[in-house]
Amino acid sequence: MKNLLDFIIKYSSWFVFLFFAVMSCLLLFQSNPYQHSIYFTSANAVSSAVYGLFNNVTSYFHLRGINEDLQQRNAMLENEVVSLRNQINDYKMQMPDTNSVRPEYQNFDFVIAHVISNSISQPYNYITINRGRADGVLPEMGVVDQNGVVGIVNVVGEHSARIISLLNPNLRLSCKVKDSDFFGSLVWDCVSPQYAVLEELPRHVEFENGDTIITSGYSAVFPEGLIVGTIEGQMPTNDDNFYTLKIKLTTDFSRLSTVRAISNGMKEELDALEAADFGNGKKGGRK
């Protein structure tokens, strides 16, 4: 017994080292990003308070750029309103019952939030926002800003939440080329925060460089038609049946400020349907 104690005391630093190494490896290799405990993420009360303080100071620095983005977006939306109004008027002339002309977004609601922490230099990036469960933010809600898709909520605290950024290879987003119905899967390749890769797009899809990539709406997370990026060019691929495209993201992740979390009124219903169809074995599928 004494020898054992002597042994442990003599080599105590090795035991301490192994203990801490195992602890950090446990944290490091929790593979499913949705299982992280709130206490070990930036969405916990202390760190979100600190980030909130910093954000109070730094949020003013980007206002000019954000203002310009909003002006552009506003102009675009105004154009769209005019053209849609014209279209509805046309429909009204063609058929008296306009109930069939329904807006697509009627089941989606938005929660406005400020980004208080954001990283783009890591291989797995996360964003923290200052809205949480008390404000109606729930896990697996989609998040967008004025320029395009930002990510998906994964850990939610009382007044803060952590988002898996689009700049995180754990996130795969089902996307399609605008005005076609063929979809592929968008994923970040850990290289540049301005570009991502669209994989598994069928060979026979016709597209040109500069075409817009939008969300496909094949899940309850994002509604159809949100802008993600534009096609920059083709990338080499091993698979002859599918294209791999380089996508320039429209969202500027280096200066995120105000974002919107999208809540879907029909999500529970859709999830229940999916669970009934496929069982629970379909984890890590398209978002």
Binding site: F17, F20, A21, M23, S24, C25, L26, L27, L28, Q30, H36, Y39, F40, T41, S42, N44, S47, V50, Y51, S117, S119, Q122, Y124, N125, Y126, T128, R162
Partner: peptide, 16 residues
């Protein structure tokens, strides 16, 4: 790690 959302990466490296 908690502040930076890096999940044990810095904890392991700091221990090393």
């Amino acid at each position: 790690d908690i502040f930076g959302d890096t999940q044990g990466m810095n904890a392991l490296a700091a221990t090393i």
